[in-house]
Each structure stands twice: as structure tokens, then as C-alpha cells.
Design a protein around this nucleic acid. Structure first.
Length: 567
DNA sequence: GCCGTTTTCGGCCCGACTGTTTTCAGTCG
């Protein structure tokens, strides 16, 4: 799919136009389309071929032509031409915090800077300070921005699973001086990766809040300490945390506003305007009167909508659905009755079967799927047939001790280089269900091998179907659309692997799977009992993909396992 | 650049913070 490539180029065009001081609305038009293309589940190339490009709101004659040119030639002449008018490392320099297009242009025109190195040198010159609008502090801020950019470049956005505990700790720390407190932004929307983090609170003594915040033990540096907004960077992953203190009567409005997404809010504002209302982080206003603001429910109610779950707030049709009363009843965090993918200490996990079972009971589960690796995965302590049977006997023994929970004797079986499974069918038949996973040959006919695996009646689930690692790996060379198509055809479920660095399927692909009526199974891929708690992340992906309970094997349909053999 | 059950022209979300100014521009979210 070329969606993100094209989105990047359109954003690039917007960047240069901004640098040149072009019409802001024109710039926004490009940005809107870029964002939209990045988010839609459909393949932009297919939309183009079926003549449906113009159906995407925001794409008119011009941008449609740009997209067509990109699809045909791999680049856009307008963008090439624009780039020839700016410094050579323009694209990078635009990402430096505190340095916007206007300042960059000012420095470029006076000093002809070409690289970040040039920029650094120029900032040391006394002439720079004397430019109109420049000053000592501004120079220092840009220098800090460069520093931040260079350190952040390697790990720009961070996985939700990393950010959540960091934020939990800060929230706990701040609770002492706050009345209400909640994270907002992409973290509250449970996006798979998080940039900056916003925390919102109310308090009797605002001063106390700011003071406590900037003296948080994990603080690396303080960026701002205003009356309503303070920002710090914490040592933990160099995350930037913004804290806002608001009045109680605006808490709901602020929570709504700062949770975003930006696109969701813009749509909401447009609707407000149509109704002669004004919505801001302070509330919904009719003239001078605040008619809502204390709670989020109140705000959505004004516009004739039920509360939209934060995970859906991406302007992917949720506002229209809410108005029409057709918001789906997406899965809730406690709807999950078990975990399909847990490794025991028989292969490369470190927890015993009994420890896992106890943890599962504590989590309120009705079932768990114990999935150790198969024989070829030697690096992961894969079980040969004999060990597998030993493990299964042990499971039977533990199962008699804990009759309140169903323990599936399952396995994560390698899909081999030729598409065969790593155990013969008669062994697979001894298992309660089978997850088929690719662990080797990431570039070798992955799509065909997965299809062959799905055609096997013992393979119920395809594990981590794209193989991506958020922090470090692109994933397999796989045609995910084709995999989804065959999953539908063969009745095979696809996994949402909830391990924090995988989240695979992601929300966009899970949405596609939903459209084709493919069943989804969430598994944590836990290697110890602590990791079983990553289930939250998997459910978040499902929620963001608009999945209802009926689409997830984890809710009531787990009893149908093994789904294909039981058909 | 896009868009339109009042519009093919005239709109397009809006406020806070910072720093440089002395009323505002740039940046951010």
C-alpha cells in the first residue's frame, strides 16, 4: 500500500508552501488529505483504479492529479519543484521543535543555511540575535529544539505499552494535589504509538499543582511552567509530559478538547458552528452563556450524540454514526474472557502452568490458551512431540485442580518455509487449537505460506499476521489484504497480538478484517504472568477498529474452539 | 486547494504560551 508514502509527500508539499508563506487554507487542504489517506483502511491505489479517489472528502481536481502522478511515476513534479527552492535538508529541519517555517525562512534568507550543522553555527552568530523578531531566548529555544530533535530522532513515537505505565505513575504522584485528573491526547485514545503526553486536572490550589509537577522525581528538564500549562521531559524514554490545570466547570470540555483527535474536534467545531454554538476547551457556548462543560457526556449530548468512546475519536465516521444513533457497541475492556496466546516454561516462557492459571483466575478469565513453540523454533525452546505430550499431561493434571477455568492445550506452530506446519496433522489433531505463525523466512513467499497454513483445518488462528515490531521491524513481505481474504474464505481467525511492541494486527488492518467478516482472536504472547496484562493493549486495538463482542473469539465464542474442526 | 439543500465566491477551528514587542507574530496542539 502506498497510502503513507503519498501522505508523506502531500505533507511535504504543505511544509514547503508554509515555508513560502502561501495561503494557510491551501496548506491545510493538503494536510487534511494527507492525514485522511494515512488513516483510511482502503488501498489508495485501488481507490484510484476504481475511480473513487474523489469520494474521499478533501480530494479535488488538483490533489487527485498529484496522487495519480505519484501512482504512475513514483513522484510528484510539483513537490520536486517546490523542494528545489528550499534548503537541502528542509524536510528534516521542519521537524525541529520551536523552529517553524517563518523562522527557518528568515534564517535561510539571511544566511543561506543548507544543513542542521549550518543552522547550529548560525545560531552562534551575533547577527542572528539582531534579526527582527529574534532574541536571546528564542535562539536558546531553537538550540534546545535541535537537541531534542536529534535525541528523539531515533525513537520518535513510543509504543502505548511503554507510555501507559510512565503516565500511570505520574498520575498517581499528582493525585495528592489534584481533584480530578486524567491523561488525554493519543494516550487516552489508546493509539498504538504515542508522541507527547497530556495530563489534565482540576485543583483547589493551582500553584501547588505546578510546583509538585515540575519537581517530579523523574524529571529531566522543565520546558514551561505557566499558570494553566506546564511541560516537562521525563528521563523515562525522554517523554514530554504536558500538565494542564482547568476549572471544574470546564473539566469535561477540556478533557474532550485535549483528547482529540484534532480531526474529530474540527468536525465537532464545524457542527457547533452550524448550530450557532461555539465549542472550546472551556465549554459549549451560546453567545456568552456556557451551556455545557462539566462533563464530556454533557458536551456530546448538546450535539445530539451519546458519549463517543475516546478510542473512536479519529473522524473516521464516528460523529456521523453517533448522530444517526448507529455507534457500534464496541468491545469493553472487561468483555474479554481469556487469552489465546501464552507461553509456559515448557518453551521460552518463564512462568509455570500453575502460575499462569492462578493469574488468569485472578484476572477473572474463563479460559486460557497455552501456546508453546513448536519443534523448529529451537531458539525459543520449541517442543518436540514427546515434550509436547508431556506438557499436555501436565496441563491435564493442573486442569483437574482448577476446574473453574478452561485450559486449552494449544501451540504456536511454525509455518515452515514451504508452507507446511511444523507438526504433522495427527499431532495437531491432539491439540485444542493451533496458532500458525511465521518465525523465519520473512521475505520468502509469506503470503502463499500463510494461505497454505489457513487451508489446513487444524490451524485456527494466524499469529501476529504482519510480523512488524513497532520499535524496530517493518514486518514480513506480506499482502495483508490477501491474507484477510483467505482468512474469510477458510474461516481462520486472525490474531491481534497484544504484546506492546507488536500490536499486530494494528487497528487499520483489524478494521479491514472486520469488513470481510473475519474473526479476531486477541492473544498477549505473554512469556511471564506480568505480560498477561498487555491484554488491555489488544482490546484497545480492537476498540479502535470498531470491533464488537461478536467479532472476537475472546468473548463468548471461545467455547467453539477449535472453530474450524467444529464446523 | 476544496467546498456548497440558501453559496461557483468567500469562507475554511481556535486559544494559549512565548518572546519580542508596545499591540503582535510565531509556534504548538
Amino acid at each position: 500500500m502506498k497510502n503513507s508514502e503519498i501522505a508523506d509527500v502531500l505533507d511535504g508539499i504543505a511544509d514547503v508552501l508554509e515555508f513560502e508563506g502561501d495561503n494557510v487554507f491551501k496548506i491545510n487542504a493538503y494536510r487534511k488529505v494527507a492525514r485522511r489517506i494515512r488513516e483510511i483502511p482502503e488501498d489508495i491505489e485501488q481507490l484510484y483504479q476504481s475511480g473513487q479517489l474523489s469520494k474521499i472528502p478533501g480530494i479535488g481536481k488538483n490533489i487527485a492529479e498529484h496522487i495519480e502522478e505519484y501512482l504512475k511515476t513514483g513522484s510528484i513534479s510539483k513537490y520536486r519543484e517546490l523542494l528545489s527552492r528550499v534548503p537541502s535538508t528542509f524536510v528534516e529541519m521542519m521537524k525541529i521543535p520551536n523552529l517553524g517555517p517563518k523562522t527557518l525562512k528568515l534564517l535561510y534568507e539571511h544566511f543561506k543555511i543548507q544543513t542542521i550543522e549550518d543552522l547550529k553555527n548560525v545560531l552562534e552568530k551575533p547577527e542572528a540575535i539582531n534579526l527582527p523578531g529574534m532574541g536571546e531566548k528564542k535562539i536558546q529555544n531553537i538550540k534546545n529544539g535541535i537537541q531534542l530533535y536529534l535525541t528523539k530522532r531515533t525513537h520518535q513515537r513510543i509504543s502505548l505499552g511503554i507510555a501507559l505505565p510512565v503516565v500511570d505513575e505520574i498520575v498517581k504522584y499528582m493525585k495528592q494535589v489534584c481533584k480530578d485528573i486524567s491523561p488525554c491526547g493519543s494516550l487516552r485514545r489508546m493509539k498504538e504509538t504515542i508522541g507527547d503526553i497530556d495530563i489534565l486536572c482540576t485543583a483547589d490550589n493551582k500553584d501547588k499543582v505546578v510546583k509538585r509537577f515540575i519537581s517530579y522525581p523523574g524529571v529531566q528538564s522543565i520546558i514551561a511552567e505557566g499558570e494553566t500549562k506546564s511541560s516537562i521531559i521525563v528521563k523515562d524514554h525522554m517523554l514530554q509530559i504536558d500538565l494542564r490545570v482547568v476549572e471544574p466547570e470546564s473539566y469535561g470540555a477540556a478533557l474532550q478538547y485535549f483528547t482529540g483527535s484534532k480531526e474529530h474536534n474540527i468536525k465537532l467545531r464545524t457542527i457547533a458552528k452550524e448550530k450557532g454554538l461555539k465549542i472550546s476547551e472551556y465549554g459549549v457556548f451560546k453567545g456568552e452563556d456556557r451551556i455545557a462543560g462539566k462533563s464530556e457526556e454533557e458536551i456530546y449530548k448538546i450535539f445530539g450524540m451519546p458519549l463517543i468512546p475516546p478510542e473512536l475519536r479519529e473522524d473516521r465516521g464516528e460523529i456521523e454514526a453517533a448522530i444517526a444513533g448507529k455507534l457500534p457497541h464496541i468491545i469493553k475492556y472487561d468483555d474479554v474472557k481469556g487469552d489465546f496466546h501464552i507461553h509456559t516454561n515448557y518453551s521460552d516462557g518463564i512462568s509455570t502452568i500453575e502460575e499462569i492459571v492462578k493469574k488468569a483466575i485472578e484476572m477473572g478469565y474463563q479460559f486460557i490458551g497455552l501456546c508453546d513453540h513448536s519443534q523448529t523454533s529451537k531458539f525459543a525452546g520449541g517442543l518436540n512431540v514427546e515434550r509436547l505430550r508431556e506438557r499436555n499431561k501436565e496441563i491435564d493434571r493442573i486442569a483437574r485442580k482448577y476446574p473453574q477455568i478452561k485450559i486449552f492445550k494449544a501451540a504456536e506452530v511454525d509455518i515452515l518455509g514451504n508452507g507446511e506446519m511444523d507438526y504433522p496433522d495427527e499431532i495437531l489433531a491432539e491439540l485444542d487449537f493451533v496458532i500458525g505463525s511465521i518465525h523465519q523466512g520473512f521475505k520468502k513467499n509469506v503470503t502463499e505460506r500463510m494461505i497454505k497454513a489457513m487451508e489446513n483445518r487444524y490451524v485456527d488462528i494466524i499469529g501476529h499476521p504482519t510480523g512488524r515490531l513497532i520499535s524496530s521491524r517493518e514486518g514480513y513481505e506480506v499482502d495483508i489484504d490477501k491474507v484477510i481474504e483467505y482468512a474469510a474464505k477458510t474461516g481462520t481467525a486472525l490474531e491481534i497480538n497484544a504484546y506492546y511492541d507488536r500490536l499486530d494486527l494494528n487497528d487499520v488492518n483489524a478494521m479491514k478484517a472486520k469488513e470481510k467478516n473475519v474473526m479476531i482472536a486477541i492473544g498477549t504472547d505473554a512469556h511471564n504472568i506480568k505480560m498477561m496484562e498487555y491484554m488491555t493493549l489488544g482490546v484497545a486495538v480492537a476498540r479502535r477498529a470498531w470491533l464488537e463482542k461478536s467479532r472476537l473469539l475472546n468473548c463468548y465464542d471461545w467455547k467453539k474452539m477449535p472453530v474450524k474442526r467444529n464446523k
